[in-house]
Structures are given as C-alpha cells and as structure tokens.
Design a protein around this nucleic acid. Structure first.
Lengths: 224, 224
DNA sequence: ACTTGACCGTACCGTACGTTACGGTTCGGC
DNA sequence: GCCGAACCGTAACGTACGGTACGGTCAAGT
C-alpha cells in the first residue's frame, strides 16, 4: 500500500508512478487553466477518483504540497564541481547558474507554481511559499555559495560576505523578469536571450567583485 | 450622484470621500486578513451595505480594480527635477529612487496588493496585474529614465540603452527582496537597512555605468 | 469460485461567497 | 411636513467547490 504522503509534515515518501501521474496532472492543470485547479478537475485530468486523491494526499493542501515538493525535487540541476579554478571556469560556472536560473523562473511551470504559492502565502495556512523559497531562491544560494567561496580562496573574487555577494548576483540575473512574469506581462525569453542575459549578468558581477578590479572591494558592503 | 466607477474599462472618475473610505477598508482588510477579502467583510469593515458596493463598483472585480488604481495613484512620489547635475546630485537621485522603491515593495500594502494581482493574473480576467505593473515597475522606469539620460548627457553615465541600464539598477536594488516577501519570508527591512541597501545598489550601479570607470562601458550590452 | 482490497465514477452534503432583493432610516429639496 | 433619493442592515438565492459515501469493476491471492 502506498501510505498517505502526508503522515507528518516533513515526512516525504517517494510517490509511486501512479501518484506521480496525478501530480503531473496537477501541474499541467495549473499551467494551462491557472485558476480551475479544483479537486474534481484534477481527478478528471488524472483519470482517478476524488476518493483516491483524498486517500493519498489527505486534503487539497496535501495535494498541492506534494506537487510543489515533487516539482522542486526535479529542478535540481547538477552541482558544479570545482575543477581547476581559473577565471574562465569561474565565469562559465556563474554563467551556467545564471542561465539555469533564468530558464527556471521563466518556465510556465515555475510561474504557475510561484503564483500558487504566493496566493497561499496570503492566507496563513500550509507553508507552500516556504517550500518554494527553500527549493528555489535558497537552494540556488546554497549551491552557488561554494563556487563563490572557492573563487575567493583562489583570489579570483573579492567580497566580504558570500550571502551579500550572492544576492547581488541574484539581482543582476533576475532583474525584473520574475515579477513581470508573475504579474502576467507578456515577456518571452528565448534561449538566446537567456544566454545573453546570463553573460551580461556574469560580466557585471565580475566587474563588481572580480579580482581584476581590485579597487571595487568596498562595494560588497559599504560601511553602513 | 457618484456615477459607477466602472462604466467603461479605463474610465476612471475620482472616487468620492465616502468611496475612498470603502477602498481604504478593502486595503486594510487585504493587509490584515489577506485571505478573507469577501464582499460581506468589506461592507462590514466600511460600514456600508453590499448593495452600495455593487452600485458603486459593479462587481467584485470592479471593486478590486478600483482599489488597485486608487492605491497606485497615491504611490507616485515627487519627480526628481534635474538641477545642476553633478555626480553628487545624480547619486542622491539614484539613492532616493532606490530607497523609495525598497520602501514601496517592502510595505505590507504593496505585498498584499501584488499578491492579489498575481493571484488574479493566474485566471485570465480583469487585468489587475497589468495595472500593478504599469504603476509600479514601469512607472518607476519612466520616472528614472530622464535621470539616467540626463546623467549620460552630462557625461556622468555611460550606457547604450537606458532601458537596459534601468533594469540593471532595478535588479541591484530589489535583488531577492520582493519575491521573498511575496512568498511569505519573514524579511524585515528597517529604515536603516533600506538606506544602506539603496546606497550599496547606487554605488554598484555607478561602478558599472559611472563615467569614472570608463573601461566598463561594454558591460551595458555585451556583443551577444 | 470466492474473498479482499484498491480503485473508478458519480451522486451527494455542507458551506462559503458572490449577487440580488427588500424593508427601514436619514436627509436634502419643496 | 412630505417625497424621493441615497444608503444601511439583513435576509435570501444560486452556485461552486471541498469533502464524503456508495455502488461497480478489476486483479491478486487462496
């Protein structure tokens, strides 16, 4: 028997294939219909009964939580290992992170998911926003931190606080993209544009924190 | 008689004082309860009848639209006139814009309003997201553009495209603040932090686009 | 063949909420 | 003092949807 996915709060058993099909249905429904994310619609789309939904996921919130967690688990891209860390490798790593992040936040799935989580954050219940944050913004922060630290140790980067440096990078990459997309702006990012923006953001970040411009260190954290 | 506010789509008559009180009630309810933004609750909070709400605003969407437009109209801060444009004045202008923007996006009102608009953008109806975008992100872009252009004409700034330069500034200022707040992260920005972040973002922007660092021009738009 | 259990499809229930209707009150104009 | 318009408070209606119950089907085990 596939135990209820939501026995506790953080207990995350792997969903079965059939259950994954249900989550896929939730996701597709979220992306296509946006609004009509009703239990009946999910059951119809997934060709399963509502009773099964409730048995597997407890309630509507459990289903949404499971969907968010499942999708979040799929997003993780491969970690960038620090090989011979020269400036070219570092730049490529940063560009890779930037391009990956832009791809994620501009994908219809991410947009729908973030809209859902934001709507949920308005009401207090069930921490969808926290899950999305932990697996999006904070996950990429944790994955990028070692790269930045390694860059600093190799003398390629200068900054005081890795977190602050990351947030600068985050801002340079994302700019107004996510908020515009969430608010329904018809902004399309082609693959080429993503690569171009990733390169631009990386160059800007290196201009601020790269070792080449040694006189810019203080920009990492002005003395309050 | 106070005509219905939503006779057409873009026809925006000024609300009367009493109507403003209603909109204020909507806003406060949105901020406090987040979720429970029901017509009955609005009527109760505003001490008016539901019938009056429907007479004035047509339907729920009309009420929300009127609220968003009314709030948007209040946000406009004074435009910064270009006096003697030296580098100190320019820096102060940029810092002022940054601090103002950070104050806006971190205010409970803005958070609630953006959540509402984002939730609405999921369903296709009634362009709340467009209104918020037009009066937020794009309005500040339009107001900042002349400052940037003047800075360039005065030889204080270097960039190819004002829009691109603005988006860089936007990213440096906002970073991850808005998305984190929208997703319910307990991030508090004190007045001092806002000022510090505004200064940091301004310094970073000037490091990228300021005339002092003449070798960084190409960062405004790398050649694909 | 019979039982068991997982599951589908559908009908059903209760509630929340948008919307409408209506009686009562206040107030400006005559 | 009377009338009508604007408005308040509340009740009522219809619907959408979360959640539950139940009968029917299929497959596996005995």
């Amino acid at each position: 028997m596939a135990a209820t996915l939501k026995t506790h709060d953080s207990e995350t058993e792997e969903p079965t294939a059939r259950q994954e099909a249900v989550l896929e249905a939730v996701l597709s429904l979220m992306v296509e219909e946006g609004d009509q994310l009703t239990m009946a619609a999910v059951a119809r789309r997934a060709s399963c009964s509502k009773e099964t939904l409730y048995k597997w996921f407890g309630d509507r919130d459990g289903l949404l939580t499971a969907t968010v967690q499942w999708q979040a688990a799929r997003v993780r891209a491969g970690a960038y290992d620090r090989q011979s860390l020269d400036i070219a490798t570092l730049r490529d790593s940063l560009k890779g992170f930037a391009a990956n992040w832009l791809s994620v936040i501009s994908s219809p799935t991410s947009i729908a998911l973030n809209r859902l989580a934001i709507g949920h954050a308005a009401s207090r219940k069930s921490n969808l926003g926290g899950i999305v944050l932990a697996n999006g913004r904070f996950a990429i922060g944790e994955r990028l931190r070692p790269v930045l630290e390694a860059g600093r140790e190799a003398g390629l980067l200068h900054f005081d606080d890795a977190e602050t440096a990351f947030r600068t990078f985050f801002g340079l990459v994302g700019r107004d993209v996510q908020i515009r997309l969430l608010l329904g702006d018809a902004l399309v990012l082609s693959r080429a544009e993503i690569m171009r923006d990733a390169a631009r953001a990386t160059d800007q970040f290196l201009a601020l924190h790269g070792a080449a411009t040694s006189s810019k260190d203080d920009l990492a954290g002005p003395k309050a």
